[in-house]
Design a protein around this nucleic acid. Structure first.
Lengths: 191, 191
DNA sequence: TTTTATTAATTGACCGTTCAATAAAAATAA
DNA sequence: TTATTTTTATTGAACGGTCAATTAATAAAA
């Protein structure tokens, strides 16, 4: 029963944060959405904080899993870079907007040590995923700069799309810009 | 007395949000920092919400004012673009980090209509400030794309620096990357 | 005195957590 | 099989604390 309930509560949390924001998300708003009692949260997660943290961990591993799945049967470095962009933008894919949920969590990470650790993992992972492929296309020094710039461009396009409450078409357009930017980096620095 | 008190309360709000986050900022934490009673907030701002909104407005106008000041006695399009970057990164300037304060506000804007309007103003202003200078250096179509990409790059570098709790040196390094990126855009698209 | 500025105590709503009670399921004994 | 006990899963009311907002009282200035 435990793994089922944990998953249900995590999904209810995602829904509640997407809808109300982290600020207005309470154990009541979550448990009501999950169709359970409020006490169950403390029972399975030790408290609200534990559930929030588990939810972020779930998002993180989803992102990672989606990238691994796309690159499972090998691909070229260029293609892998495009997959990284897709994975990072496709956080939207699932029902409702998980995007604003990420933003809530990252903003909160500035004042929460545990969440900040998770944020750091996420930022470094994007960078090293990019670096790995760039290194196969250019010298190490250029690859590092390309990875840093690409990471910033992806996050920046994503952030501006989220904040302006962009629709799917606008998200796709931002994703295209990110891809074209990476291709221009390859052309500029590639051997 | 009113304008003095309003300014004091706005600055106390900035301090409190930078220190505790928007989530944990209460009318008590603000009024204590300002050395006043909690009731004064309702008196001058109608309530907590009004004070938060006034604080964001103050940040927005500070940003705009700082750019206007730098470009007061005319400058070349390239130089103006560099000034835009500086203005957007120098939100740090004042004591303590105002940066995480911005992040708190923008995250909250996803669930607050009034704040969302202010965010939209800010995003568009950065874009059109950039566009104005790019148009003097390249064709309109290229200028539009350059402005969009630059805005995303600035925001992305800024976001990653804030989230990783970068120190002043790392912030400067991010700022340099942004400037160099804009220069590369000019070289690429410039007539 | 009248007006303005400010305080500090109070109010009612809501927060997260705890916990005794209960329902359902599983195990054991008859 | 049936009856009984034990374990597991879940509830929801109660508690202590904190929030934003209000308000009557007070101090200072005009």
């Amino acid at each position: 029963m435990e793994p089922v309930r944990r998953q249900q509560l995590i999904e209810a949390t995602l829904q509640s944060v997407a809808e109300l924001g982290l600020q207005a998300t309470t154990i009541n708003s979550i448990s009501k959405k999950a169709g359970m009692s409020s006490g169950i949260i403390s029972h399975y997660f030790g408290g609200k904080q534990g559930l929030i943290e588990a939810t972020v961990r779930y998002l993180l591993s989803s992102l990672q899993r989606s990238l691994l799945h796309k690159t499972a049967q090998g691909c070229s470095p260029e293609q892998r870079l495009m997959f990284i962009v897709e994975a990072n933008f496709a956080v939207v894919q699932q029902q409702s907007d998980t995007t604003r949920t990420w933003l809530s969590f990252w903003a909160h990470s500035m004042h929460d040590a545990q969440l900040h650790r998770l944020q750091r993992v996420n930022a470094r992972r994007l960078y090293s995923n990019l670096l790995y492929s760039f290194k196969q296309l250019m010298a190490q020094g250029e690859a590092r700069e390309a990875a840093e710039l690409s990471a910033a461009m992806i996050d920046g396009l994503w952030l501006r799309a989220v904040l302006s409450k962009a629709d799917d078409a606008q998200f796709d357009s931002a994703q295209d810009l990110a891809k074209r930017y990476i291709q221009s980096l390859i052309q500029q620095f590639g051997v």
